[in-house]
Design a protein around this nucleic acid. Structure first.
Lengths: 102, 102
DNA sequence: TTCATATTTCCAGAATAATGGAAATATAAT
DNA sequence: ATTATATTTCCATTATTCTGGAAATATGAA
């Protein structure tokens, strides 16, 4: 992962609305949810949600899929994995963080 | 980890200079580096670096330690671990991401 | 106490990002 | 074709964040 991609992903997540959207989609992975459902659940105006979905999608944190008249977005967990590795690259204590994961 | 703490950490890392500082300190964990050395290595003016170090420290991503006349900062890998868990919480596929780490 | 070094605070200008109403587009159902 | 629904684009306003010079503070050395 390139530095610029890492920044794009981190910046995408570093915003309350987008973090809420992303985590909602993580809970609904791998199927995803239609834009309208996300908007209703989080109480967001269409243009605002659309703007934030684009930011998340540009970071490849979520992916759109047409489904009839609506569009469902689903979380892409792979990007988070890459991001984590990038952040801890060349750490004294090896990959995956400084404490073993249980 | 609370949502507001996650946003603080993500926003701290979502900036080129700060990401560079953090990764430099990860490579030098757990000893850390003095402010002056970081400034020289990354070619940053004092006030700019000081500002960014404060943002990273406020997120508990790095920690200062006085050492004579200088101050060394070192990376705190624990925060990254918590952040990763938070982002993937309640994922369909369990903790630690949707693919097993090797 | 005076001096040199390390780091921070102050602050104002410059740059970037978020918000949501109105209008536009796309698509499927009737 | 017309209508209803879903989503996006446009865009101006507001809010937030970044930058670095000048001055201030802190600490150790001479």
């Amino acid at each position: 992962m390139k530095t610029s991609d890492a920044i794009t992903s981190l910046a995408a997540l570093a915003q309350e609305t987008r973090l809420g959207v992303f985590r909602l989609l993580v809970r609904h992975a791998p199927k995803g949810l239609p834009v309208g459902v996300i908007a209703r659940r989080l109480g967001l105006p269409g243009p605002t949600l659309s703007f934030h979905l684009n930011v998340l999608a540009a970071a490849d944190l979520i992916r759109p899929k047409k489904n009839g008249r609506s569009i469902s977005y689903s979380a892409n967990p792979e990007t988070i994995n890459e991001l984590t590795s990038f952040l801890m690259e060349n750490c004294c204590c090896g990959r995956g963080g400084c404490r073993p994961r249980e």
